[in-house]
Amino acid sequence: MTAQTSAKRPPPAADIRPPAARRRARRPGFVTAALGLPVAFMAIVYAYPVGAMLLKSVTEPTAGFGNFTEAATDRTMWHVLWITVRMSAEVAVLTVLLGFPVAYFLARTSKRKARFLVLLVVIPFWTSILVRSFAWIVLLGDNGLVTKILEPLTGDGQGMLYSESAVIIAMTHILLPFPILIIKGTLDQIDASLPRAARSLGAGPVRAFAHVYLPLAVPAIVSSGMLVFVIALGFYVTPALVGGPKQSTIAVVIAEAVQVNFDWGMAATLATLLLILATALTMIVRRLTKVKGLVTL
């Protein structure tokens, strides 16, 4: 290099002092401030009641884990828990099985058509669960439409109301929009050139779907299934209206504990058990179905 460049060397290190650390007033930003409101809201309507519930479970009627031992030794409690988990799992699997093809179709059809059809999926949300459950009572009852249609097959006019099938059908209907919307959201993100690439690389349509498309949809399938499962665990209205005494879910038993027995401590205990159950199962399923290479939510 020439002399000119060397003349432009930086001054000796001793002369360099780091600039005074910049100070900027650390005022809460707009986003932080805006976050305050929902946090406060959640604290009041969510954190406090859950805390109170957890507290009640170990304080009422007397301090200690008496409620838990009572619940754990009560065979009917285990049975109720088992029915709740089983029905929720069945509903979760059914909604995903029925929802995936719909979501797949919605993701592949034209944007305009999809917008309209998504509206149709969402409309039932505008109707209350109570109304929809009552509708199933009418449909599945002894002289209901479904019963009449099925009469030539079943051979009698007996409705399937107050049975496990009735609860499953009604809950599946009510919860079906969740998997459809969640899975569609993920399928929309899948690059349309991926299945095409798979085809060009020698995969037939079935193998392209199984090896490329489906694995990419697994996170959405699992998380929507989990969501339905967790919501179903706490379902009260539908099992109470459409189901019989044999279909008492844990939510029904909790309501009974409060309304009939005035046993707040037991109700809180069962609710706590439900919370623990839902959390544990969610975490296990998440861990088991991680798809490598994908950023999951």
Binding site: D191, S193, A197, A198, L294
Partner: peptide, 14 residues
């Protein structure tokens, strides 16, 4: 039996 290279690569992310 054609090798196809896409503009966005179309690599399988998983």
């Amino acid at each position: 039996n054609i090798g196809l290279v896409f503009q966005n690569y179309a690599l399988f992310p998983h």
